[in-house]
């Protein structure tokens, strides 16, 4: 018996040591693979970062090289020129980032959770609006805004967020809602809750990570977007530009900035920081698990 016990315990100890060794090797291999992939995937980012600290002759020079030979962090002073546009961008982005996911969730709920008359048709119409290329809708949409007098004003950038936040977002929320088990609302229905109650109390908290995901995506897309603002805000005053628009305008007017790629990259790096920070903060929320509260395993 004792021999058995001894053999068992040595076996246990050596197997755990083996496991420890195996896990260490595992870790090293996985980190190495990740590092290798990162080297490929991060090449553009590295290029951007290195260009942003190069001195002017080097960044506009004719030889391409990755690692800078000069170091000029004073390029970053360029952001001081853009502080006045920051407020505009924050306003537009905040309104969009809150209302787009909200209306997307509101719209997606009936499709995911209920059967009603005209469901197929409504879904088809919603998805159909995304399939038309934006170029041809440009003139009629611009005309509509011009007739109402919204061109040149910031309101043109956030007014669409109240009206169903984008067909693809709706579709995404539908897919997420449908992964939730149906027992949740069936229990509530038996208790006599109305659809509104089910939506507000049960479903919304559970799709919170999708809400945050759409929110972050909207922030990122709107932060860097200049094409929409260029079309609608061009006739307005410079005070109402957004950050990305002012940056693009400076980059294309033959001003100092269009020549100095290094300072331009410094500005781009600074512009990328808020979305990165947001992503870091909310990463756990987006990817972290949902709590299937109320359901017994």
């Amino acid at each position: 018996m004792t021999t058995d016990f001894y053999t068992c315990s040595t076996q246990l100890i050596s197997s755990s040591r083996r496991k420890a060794r195996k896990t260490a090797l595992d870790y090293i291999v996985k980190y190495a693979v990740a590092l290798l992939l990162l080297c490929v995937v991060l090449l553009p980012v590295a290029f951007m970062l290195f260009q942003s600290v190069m001195s002017y002759p080097e960044s506009s020079g004719l030889e391409m090289h990755l690692f800078p030979h000069s170091f000029q962090p004073s390029n970053y002073k360029i952001i001081l020129d853009y502080l006045s546009q920051l407020g505009n961008t924050l306003l537009v982005v905040a309104i969009n980032a809150f209302f787009i996911p909200l209306t997307a969730c509101i719209t997606a709920f009936p499709f995911a959770r209920a059967k009603f008359i005209g469901k197929k048709v409504a879904f088809a119409i919603i998805l159909a609006t995304v399939m038309v290329p934006a170029s041809v809708l440009q003139i009629p949409t611009y005309t509509m805004y011009a007739t109402v007098g919204l061109t040149g004003k910031l309101a043109s950038l956030w007014i669409q967020s109240f009206f169903g936040g984008g067909a693809l977002n709706i579709f995404l929320v539908i897919q997420f809602m449908r992964t939730l088990p149906k027992e949740l609302d069936e229990a509530a229905l038996i208790d006599g809750a109305s659809l509104f109650r089910i939506f507000a109390v049960i479903i919304m908290p559970l799709v919170f990570n999708v809400f945050v995901y759409i929110c972050i995506n909207t922030v990122i897309a709107q932060w860097m977007d200049f094409q929409g603002p260029l079309m609608y805000l061009a006739t307005g005053s410079e005070k109402s530009y957004t950050l990305a628009l002012k940056f693009y305008v400076d980059y294309t007017n033959s001003t100092y900035l269009s020549d100095h790629y290094n300072e331009m990259m410094a500005m781009v790096v600074c512009m990328s920081l808020p979305p990165v920070a947001l992503f870091l903060v909310f990463q756990q929320r987006m990817i972290g698990g949902i709590k299937i509260g109320g359901l017994k395993d």
Partner: peptide
Amino acid sequence: MLRTSLQCWVFLIPVSVGMVVFAATPIFMS
């Protein structure tokens, strides 16, 4: 079914308005 449908369509009011104003008009014009 009718009652549920009515409730569901209340949820769909924002997207319907948006559809008609921002999507239908440009699409039909083009």
